[in-house]
Amino acid sequence: MNRLAGRVALVTGGLRGIGHAVVRRFLAEGAAVMVADLSTPEAAAGTLATMAGDVGYVELDVGDEDQWIAAVAAIAARFGRLDILIANAGVGGSGPVRTTSLRDWHAILRVNLDGVFLGTRCCADMLADAGRSLPGGAAIVNMSSIMGLVGLPQVAPYNASKGGVRLFTKSTALEFAAAGTPIRVNSVHPGFVETPLLMESSDADAIAFYTGATPMGRLARPEEIAAAVAFLASDDASYMTGSELVVDGGYTAR
């Protein structure tokens, strides 16, 4: 398929996990992609060299407004336009509320929620300009989680951040639609995915729990989430905005 031919996408957290799978799927679908992550360009060069297609890289801490401004300028200089923003960068964390420090709380929300806000605000003008020439408009896809829909003990900051992404998505979708701004905004809510973020932070018992709690009886592959993201970014989803697309193996169906 070549649904994204001629379009330029920015994917945050694009060097690992779901973000990396999204980058590869978008390149396969014909898009040019600016990958954003925390690594230096030199450290990222090896990973980028394995990707076939028009791909660039920008170092970006998504919680830093100045770095977002610089990233947008880099996209304008390299590609001259921006059609798709994938706000994927995220961090995890666990522990009882009573022992969670305010610093740790802020650290999770800074990346998972502030990063989505800053990306939307800083990229909106470029996206709107590109969206005027696209049948379905430009697209923002925000990475939430099933933990933005249902609770889980001892991950309150993560739950709060991903729930915030869900409603921020709906609010901005309505705001853009009401103003006639040609940007669609949707969120994706993965279940338990076999990513470095999950596997490095979970022991064997936790992985067994996640697998057993999922009706389909397995973890998702990053490529399965990337497929959903590609759909929302394409004109196949031209009548979707403010939607939440759940890809969780049936977890929230119970």
Score class of each variant (00 low, 15 high):
L48H: 06
A52S: 14
A173S: 12
A45N: 06
F117W: 14
V193R: 11
T50E: 15
R103E: 09
A74N: 09
M143V: 14
D54L: 04
F231K: 09
A233V: 03
A220P: 03
F79I: 01
V165L: 00
Q154K: 13
A227C: 05
W105M: 12
V116H: 05
A21L: 08
V62T: 15
D64W: 05
G212Q: 13
P222D: 03
R132Q: 13
M126S: 13
Y251T: 15
G242T: 04
G93S: 11
F209Y: 11
D125M: 13
V116Y: 02
A226S: 04
E200D: 15
N2Q: 15
T120K: 01
L85E: 00
A237K: 06
Y210Q: 09
G119F: 09
A73G: 11
A206C: 12
W105K: 07
L167V: 14
S94L: 11
S133M: 06
V72C: 15
G92H: 08
T50C: 02
R184E: 14
A173P: 10
I69S: 15
M51K: 09
P135K: 08
G242V: 01
L82T: 02
L174P: 03
A233N: 01
R3V: 08
I140P: 03
A43N: 10
E200G: 05
A32C: 04
E65H: 13
M126L: 15
Y57Q: 10
A107I: 03
G136C: 03
V188W: 08
A21N: 10
